[in-house]
Amino acid sequence: MSLYYPFHKEATTLGEIIMGLLLILLSLLIYTHSDDLPSMNESQLDAGSFPQIIAILLGILSLLLVLTKTIKLIKERQAQDESPKSIKKALIDLYQEHKLVLLILSVLFIYIVLVQVIGFIISSIAFMIVTALIIGPKTKKDIILISSIAVILTVGLYMFFQEILKVRFPTGLFF
């Protein structure tokens, strides 16, 4: 982490502020939607009241977080004597750090979509092979190893759940 130290620290604080703002947004959303819920009786708490209470608390605490972190960010900026490293370089660094995470998350999302389209077995096997090759080495030996693991595991789990637990997996459009 020391590679891009000043920016990283700032980026974390900035991220915390953004998280806080998102949470405030969520609280507002829930709070306003709670009003539309049917209410039965004036004297009791109705369906919307509990979420409303929680939303208010969450909103206040998130606001507190945003405020404290903004003050921290301003202080950090002032404390920095030297001019910040080139932002572009820092962003590239940040991207490098999280490249694999983004990649694998996208593959995971595609996999989830594909489960419905081409069925569980094919998509799972393909997903495992693709992910392993993105993360790890791409030698012939590795491809054979991960392919066999993928096939055995997928078919094994499929049989187990289908036969013993009577779970029906999505088969996709082709079957």
């Binding site: 694998i104 799972s124 495992m128 392993a132 993360i135 790890g136 693991i149």
Partner: peptide, 14 residues
């Protein structure tokens, strides 16, 4: 890791 991650992800989805 490159074996562990895909295997566990599939287990999660299942």
């Amino acid at each position: 890791t490159h074996l562990l991650v895909p295997i566990i992800l599939v287990l999660c989805v299942i």
